[in-house]
Amino acid sequence: MRILIGAVAVALLTGCTTPGDLIKSSPTIVAKTTKAPKAYALCVLPGWQEHQAGATMNETLTGYRLISSAESIGQTNELLEIKQAPEGSEVRLYQRMPSISLGRSKITSSVNNCL
């Protein structure tokens, strides 16, 4: 029984994905918008919260960051970085899995619809 519990714990820990892990991969979407970073983030956030109630928005030194995660297992599913650009914002979406998986197309729709 102890071996089974230990194996499950190890399996759960190996599935953890942090925002830093996602940034190491290639972005799913790279785009530019004429909207200011805060305006763009506030446009995207409600759609993300419909999909994942715990989606968060944080201000960074260069703009904003939205994170959608499965907190119960410590896994970040999506990360949207919005950085100030000369004429608006640069947007980069990083995803743990393709957006069509598990009905997560709402995430990419929100990103694209707000551009």
Results as ranks from 00 to 15, higher is better:
82 I>D: 11
43 C>Q: 00
73 I>A: 04
85 A>I: 01
93 L>Y: 02
82 I>P: 00
58 N>Y: 07
93 L>K: 04
63 G>E: 07
63 G>P: 06
67 I>C: 07
43 C>Y: 05
93 L>D: 00
91 V>E: 06
92 R>M: 01
98 P>Y: 03
48 W>P: 03
45 L>W: 01
75 Q>T: 15
61 L>Q: 15
81 E>V: 13
88 G>Q: 01
57 M>S: 06
96 R>E: 09
90 E>S: 13
54 G>N: 14
67 I>S: 01
68 S>L: 04
48 W>R: 04
79 L>T: 04
95 Q>D: 07
47 G>M: 09
32 K>T: 14
88 G>P: 10
67 I>T: 13
97 M>I: 15
71 E>G: 13
66 L>V: 07
49 Q>L: 10
34 T>F: 02
92 R>Y: 02
40 Y>K: 00
56 T>P: 00
63 G>S: 02
73 I>G: 06
69 S>P: 03
89 S>I: 07
83 K>V: 13
85 A>N: 00
82 I>S: 05
36 A>F: 05
70 A>S: 13
78 E>Y: 12
31 A>F: 03
42 L>C: 04
68 S>T: 11
40 Y>R: 05
72 S>V: 15
81 E>K: 12
39 A>Q: 11
29 I>P: 03
86 P>Q: 06
74 G>I: 10
101 S>V: 14
55 A>I: 04
52 Q>I: 11
97 M>T: 15
87 E>V: 13
60 T>E: 09
34 T>S: 12
72 S>Y: 12
68 S>E: 10
78 E>S: 13
71 E>P: 01
44 V>M: 10
65 R>V: 15
94 Y>F: 11
76 T>K: 03
54 G>C: 09
90 E>H: 11
52 Q>N: 13
38 K>N: 11
98 P>T: 01
46 P>S: 03
52 Q>T: 11
101 S>D: 14
59 E>K: 14
80 L>W: 03
64 Y>K: 10
40 Y>E: 00
51 H>D: 12
44 V>C: 07
31 A>Y: 04
91 V>H: 08
58 N>C: 01
60 T>V: 02
52 Q>A: 13
97 M>R: 14
42 L>R: 06
74 G>S: 07
72 S>P: 04
66 L>P: 00
66 L>C: 03
37 P>G: 02
41 A>E: 08
88 G>R: 06
68 S>H: 05
80 L>K: 05
64 Y>E: 04
89 S>W: 03
84 Q>K: 15
53 A>W: 08
46 P>C: 01
63 G>V: 03
83 K>T: 15
34 T>R: 10
68 S>G: 14
80 L>G: 06
67 I>E: 05
80 L>V: 02
77 N>Y: 09
62 T>D: 14
35 K>F: 03
58 N>V: 12
61 L>G: 14
53 A>L: 07
49 Q>W: 06
94 Y>N: 01
56 T>F: 05
98 P>H: 08
101 S>W: 14
43 C>D: 02
64 Y>V: 00
96 R>A: 10
46 P>D: 07
70 A>E: 14
81 E>I: 13
50 E>K: 13
72 S>N: 12
96 R>F: 11
65 R>C: 10
